[in-house]
Amino acid sequence: MKTAEKTGVVLAEKKVDQKKMRAKVKRVLLFLSIIAIILLILIPIYLLFKISVSASQDILTQHPPFLIKNFTWKHWLKILSAGQIWNPLWKSVIVASMVALLGIIIAAPGAYVISRLPKKIKYGVLLAIFSTRMFPEVGIALPISVTFIKWGLLDTNLGLVLAHLIRVLPLMAWVLTGTFDTIPRDLEQSAVVDGCNKIQALVKVVLPLSLAGLAAGAILSWLESWNEFTYAIYLCLADTTLPIKTYYYISRGNWFESAAYAVFLTFPVMIITFVLQNYLKSDYLSGALKY
């Protein structure tokens, strides 16, 4: 009897031990796979930075080292002092800011109307607008560039802004409709009851409440325009944006210049994305991406 009990206890302990072991193995595996994924994400970015600050003998060799051996700011300084970067940089900044501003001005009133539509029509309209992002950009850019040649808009900021708005507006409408959805209609109505007219209710009640969403939408649009490549390569000839300039150095096979340009191109985006991260999980997007 006693021995049987004892073996029972021992067996149970063994089982518990096994379970613990398994849980431990699982946790280690989990941890290792997380580390592996983190490395796969970070190493490419590290390599870009590394190339932009490495002396050429570290890079233009059959067996490049993974660590930074001969550190130098040479390539960065060369680009900044050569002065080629300022015009594209300035153009990118201006175009992106105009896109964000015009995007808000055109999309916000539209999104407000859409969010106040009856539910059934609303999602139909939103889906119709958003599905325009499904069209191939090379197909849109082609007639646009033909038309812009006629209108003299090729190689101008305005032309590029208009083209970028094609991409940005559906996205804006989508995000901002979500923002306006979170503002209850009762609020406007009670403002009207309290003696505001409709415009005042909009400006004094709806606008302040939607500011955070508008800001998020503007930043997203700014980034879209900053990163945009396809329309820019169709519409820019001499006066290019930063991504096109980067592409120019890539196609010339110049590693260091393209690396340094790529780093400069990425900086603002990284910073903004980090700041924006909280928005990415908050209601502004999840509210818009309602399923």
């Binding site: 970015i45 900053w226 991504p243 592409y247 790529a262 191109l265 990425t266 990284m270 994305t273």
Partner: peptide, 13 residues
């Protein structure tokens, strides 16, 4: 992070 990297830059990398 990769979402914040411009596509052209990911191409360079």
């Amino acid at each position: 992070i990769p979402m914040g990297v411009p596509t052209i830059v990911s191409g360079v990398i």
